[in-house]
């Protein structure tokens, strides 16, 4: 699975099966602070994800 975290501009590859919420927890991202995108589509927090998916966590905290 490829996971992109917008806020830190990092991309990581990892093995994972579970929900988007669990994935965020695993990599230390607060699910409240991100919008989850799976294979180009916005998905809810309990969306199941697997190793074939490409996930982006877009930062909802911006501006200043």
């Amino acid at each position: 699975m490829e996971v992109f975290i917008e806020r830190s501009h990092t991309t990581m590859n990892l093995e994972f099966e579970g929900s988007v919420r669990e994935l965020a927890e695993k990599i230390g991202v607060n699910i409240v602070e991100v919008l989850s995108v799976k294979n180009g589509e916005i998905v809810p927090e309990d969306e199941p994800v697997n190793n074939n998916d490409k996930i982006s966590f877009l930062s909802v905290v911006s501006g200043g």
Binding site: R7, V37, S59, G63, G64
Partner: peptide
């Protein structure tokens, strides 16, 4: 994002 409005991610 849903409306594809042109906004970039940027933090002050």
């Amino acid at each position: 994002v849903m409306h594809k409005l042109p906004v970039r991610f940027v933090e002050c």
